[in-house]
């Protein structure tokens, strides 16, 4: 099964709910990905308002 994305926080999740925001509002229709390794020092993470290192989708439908 393909990965799903949390519609609230755009995090790519493997289960049925988002482990961080607890939402079960997931979508399998997403595109683009950003992997944040060092959220504190990453300028991309800062620009996107991300403070937890993880995998995120750029666009979720």
């Amino acid at each position: 099964m393909s990965d799903q994305v949390c519609r609230e926080c755009h995090r790519i999740v493997t289960g049925q709910t988002c482990p961080i925001c607890g939402s079960s509002n997931l979508s399998s229709d997403w595109s683009g990905m950003v992997v944040i390794v060092d959220a504190e020092r990453s300028a991309i993470a800062k620009k996107m308002g991300i403070d937890i290192p993880d995998k995120y989708a750029l666009k979720v439908r």
Partner: peptide
Amino acid sequence: RKEHFDIRAILVPD
């Protein structure tokens, strides 16, 4: 993460 390389983010635009 494993080797502690200073890579901060990886962007994969479609």
